[in-house]
Structure formats: structure tokens, C-alpha cells
Amino acid sequence: MNQAVNKLTIKDYTSDQEVRWCPGCGDYAILKTIQKLMPEFDRPKENQVFISGIGCSSRFPYYMNTYGFHTIHGRAPSIATGVKLANPELDVWVITGDGDALSIGGNHTMHALRRNVNLNILLFNNEIYGLTKGQYSPTSKVGTHSPSTPQGSIDLPLSPCAVALGSGAAFVARSIDTEMKHLSAVIKTAHAHEGASFIEILQNCPIYNDGIFENVKDKKIAADFRVEIEHGQALIFGKEKNKGIRLNTKTLSLEVVTIGVDCPLEEVLVHDQTNLTLAQLIGAMGGDDSPVAVGVIYHNPKPNYVDDLFIQREQLSQGKDQGKLNELLRSGHTWEVA
């Protein structure tokens, strides 16, 4: 089986459907990355299932030559949970967006992560509603002008990674649509994780929200606006690799320092992906005064729902395939009428 699987290529994972995203959409790059990555998983193609909700990103399953189900707005994590419970052998992927996962489907995202169902959740965050023509989303920055907020949005955005960490996710990461190498590495780690994994993918919408992630994507300036994190490595960034992140133990907050100027190298924070408090601080970076963290923010396995459910079930059935219904019907108090 493995040999046959290894022979598969990107072509085997590409469906015959014409891709209908807008030209220049970040979704194209993500699709290509995943199609290319699939053969590396060493898993039968028929065991890959992509579940999506509604929105631009949710068209994704149509373009994968795997099993796929394009469902209804916000509910992909719930449908995916049912798929996984019915057949734990399947690799179940949830493809969702910021509106789908955090607005209409926020509850399901939260509970799939809390329960730790073995799903790989990929959230394409473009901070806008694309398919409905450009309204602001729950991740849009304050002041976003859109058809529904012509004077600028006034409500605070959610941070997807903060929501995931707050929901109890055991795997939380962030990556970027067009960076195939980085995205591939993060997805591979997520796939290997037992339990729910959550990846926020910063994704450009060239039509309604073009360029919002330009600072972290533009090769000329990105080094100053993002920090690539890795477990056990110091949080160092900047074109000159002279900037770092330090934990201010008095204010319990992170601060940007210049190494060798206002901070010795030893005091730069070292990333520990098993530390929830650090993950929350690192995941929240990216405002005006700190870089955006990309990479695995938190990875700390815990018992997962599917394994525990089947253990309980095994204990009840004691190895029997299934109970005899006639015995069940006659269990408890019965009596004979002659």
C-alpha cells in the first residue's frame, strides 16, 4: 500500500474542476501547497476527506481529488466531527474562513478545539467577507471601510489564534498563503498531531482587502514585521537579525528589544511551544509595536475525544461486535402470559 501511495503526485490530488477564485487570490497558493503536500503523507488518497462551510475558501474541496463535502455556513467543524466519529481511519480536514469559523460558526470552532476531535482545521484569514462582496469580518481591523461599514467598522476584531488557545486547542499555528515551504512544514506538523490542530493562514484577498498582510509578506520589509518562531529557539527577527522579543517579568508582557543595545542575547525569549501562557503572549503579537509570529505557537498534546470515546465503547462491548437485540428487548422485568 505504502509503495502505491508514494507514487502519487500533485496531479493525483488535483480534481477536474475549473478553479473559480478571483485571479491573484491567495487561495490558489494554499491549494497548490496542499495538493503538492498530500503525497508526502503516506496515506491512502481515499482516506483524505475535506469538509468546508461557506465562503470563498470553502470552495476548496471541489478542487481536491479526494473525498469532499461543501456544506453550510459555519458548520464544517460539526460535519467533520461526525465524519471522524463514524470512521476514525479517515484524515479529516476542515477548510474555513474568518467569517465561517469565527462569526456564524464560532461556537463549533470553539467546541471542536475544546473536545480535541482529531481534525486539521485550516482557517484562511483574509479579514473580509469576499463571497458576499466585501463586508467587514470579525477579524477586520477597526476602521475597515466596507459596504456595511461605510464610515469604518467600530467593533474590535478577534484574533483567531487567541480564540483557538482560549478554547483549549492543543495545536495552534500561523502561516502565510504564498509561502509554500513554511506552510507545508506547519501543515505537516499539524497533520502528525493527534487531536485537533488549528492553523491560521494569512490570506490575501486582492479584490476587497488587498495588501493587508503586505508588511509580513513583502520580502523587502517582512523581516522587520514578522518573527519566525521555532521551539527552543530565541525570538530573533529584523533584517539585521538584531531585534528580539523579551519577556518583561514586571509587566508580564512582551517587548521588542535591540540585541546588544538595550538587551543582552541571553535575555531574549526562547520559544517553548508547550507553554500556554507564552503561546498566548506570542500569538497576540502583531500590533503597531510588535512583529507577527509565524510558525507553531502552541503544541502540547492532550487526550483526544475520538480515542477516549472508542476506549469507553470497547469497555462496554467487551470485544463483542454488537449486542443481540432479542436479548436487549428481553432485558429487565418481563413476564409471560400463557
Binding site: I72, I79, G82, L85, A86, N87
Partner: peptide, 15 residues
């Protein structure tokens, strides 16, 4: 909603 959706997912998967 999650309940009915999980049930639909299970049916898609063959339960």
C-alpha cells in the same frame, strides 16, 4: 445545529 450536522457528517462517512 452541531448535532444535526454531526449526524449528516456521519451519514456522509457511511454510518
Amino acid at each position: 445545529i452541531a448535532a444535526v450536522c454531526a449526524a449528516i457528517g456521519a451519514s456522509f462517512a457511511g454510518s
